[in-house]
């Protein structure tokens, strides 16, 4: 049994996120990474404030603090005034600033949900865990945390891990890009994976970037407009290929992402059969994002070839999202039990 400490009543959280505030306001009040150490000191130096942690990501800005004010409203009012002053907001901008003001158990519940990825735009995403950890480390290094926030954040990390270990909230893919990565990872060792983009559309670029960020070895870009191919290849650290040359290079790659605007199939079974002979049974993943489709569906019948069109990718992403939503109740239950365990709620 953990002691219920009255000091938790002095805990306050002021925040805004992608739900409460449009991006044009969020970007206005975001703390650049380099300014966060300064910000935590400024918050702690406010009259009646003792500890502070500032979390600033592209989707949220949150200030966690402890105070000695008589009531939480007063402390939250001070924090709002600080934000307006700090970012020099005009009266109409200050008027439009919508924040959530939480204290004691509500603030702890919110932090536990944030760390577990339940408050994220992509439900269950894991990046936020590292971002909260980094924010806490900055405050710790700046000396603006003490007993209450140190304990709260340690508890939050432990809850975040528990939620991830005991549920499948982070499993499965929820976007076309992450589905492409998951598929590539189950066909090849991603570090050895060579990727070819045929067509330089926005979605194929997203897929290729997801693959590269997860360690894909190299990328080749081929597009009708060679200048666009060169531009994209340069941006992604790959090489550009003339549009009439991609067919000859197909056997050298492990993943093909196709998104041309051709009105007919550009990749046919005969071509792939020829490619597979040259590949000596090395598996080939083909992701066809184009509408109308670029790849003849009969290609999926060829030994060692795995073809996914946009509908298949979307269906996997949808099912991933649904799977995560199904886990939401179990995650909330864990958080509630931990809030009780740590004495935030009875």
């Amino acid at each position: 049994m953990v002691d219920v400490e009255p000091i938790q009543n002095q805990l306050v959280c002021l925040g805004l996120n992608y739900r409460t505030t449009p991006v044009e306001v969020r970007e206005r009040v975001a703390f650049p990474e380099s300014k966060v150490p300064e910000a935590v000191q400024e918050v702690r130096a406010l009259p009646g404030f003792e500890e502070s942690v500032v979390l600033s990501t592209c989707n949220r800005v949150e200030i966690y603090s402890t105070h000695t004010h008589a009531d939480a409203q007063q402390a939250q009012g001070e924090l709002v005034k600080y934000v307006i002053r700090r970012f020099d907001l005009a009266p109409e901008q200050a008027e439009a600033l919508v924040t959530y003001d939480l204290h004691a158990g509500e603030a702890a519940r919110h932090l536990f949900r944030v760390v577990s990825g339940l408050d994220s735009m992509v439900l269950g995403e894991t990046e936020i865990f590292g971002q909260v950890k980094a924010a806490y480390q900055v405050a710790l290094a700046a000396g603006t945390t003490s007993r209450t926030l140190n304990k709260l954040f340690q508890q939050a990390f432990s809850v975040g891990k528990k939620v991830r270990n005991e549920t499948t909230i982070q499993r499965g893919s929820t976007s076309v890009g992450s589905v492409a990565v998951d598929l590539a990872e189950k066909v090849h060792d991603l570090k050895e994976c060579r990727v070819m983009l045929i067509g330089a559309g926005e979605m194929s670029r997203t897929c290729a970037q997801s693959l590269l960020s997860r360690g894909a070895k190299s990328i080749i870009v081929s597009n009708r407009s060679h200048d666009r191919a060169v531009e994209l290849a340069t941006e992604m650290g790959g090489t550009a290929l003339k549009f009439d040359e991609w067919e000859a290079a197909m056997h050298e790659v492990d993943v093909i992402i196709s998104s041309t605007s051709a009105p007919h199939f550009v990749i046919k079974p005969e071509q792939i059969q020829h490619v597979m002979k040259k590949r000596r049974w090395e598996p080939l993943l083909i992701i066809d994002i184009a509408v109308p489709r670029d790849v003849d569906p009969a290609v999926n019948g060829i030994e060692g070839v795995y073809l996914y069109d946009i509908d298949a990718l979307q269906a996997i992403a949808d099912s991933g999202r649904k799977e995560r939503e199904k886990q939401l109740y179990a995650c909330e239950q864990i958080i509630e039990s931990q809030l009780t365990k740590y004495g935030f709620v009875e």
């Binding site: 499993r171 499965g172 589905v179 998951d182 598929l183 990872e185 189950k186 066909v187 090849h188 060792d189 090395e282 598996p283 999926n300 795995y306 996914y308 298949a312 269906a315 996997i316 099912s319």
Partner: peptide, 23 residues
């Protein structure tokens, strides 16, 4: 098993646990 999952687009529980087919 993994080859069948990939071919038939059955992307679920066991698929995520099994290693890549190449390995």
């Amino acid at each position: 098993l993994q080859e069948r999952f990939l071919k038939k687009h059955h992307i679920g529980g066991l698929f995520y646990q099994l290693p890549p087919i190449q390995g």
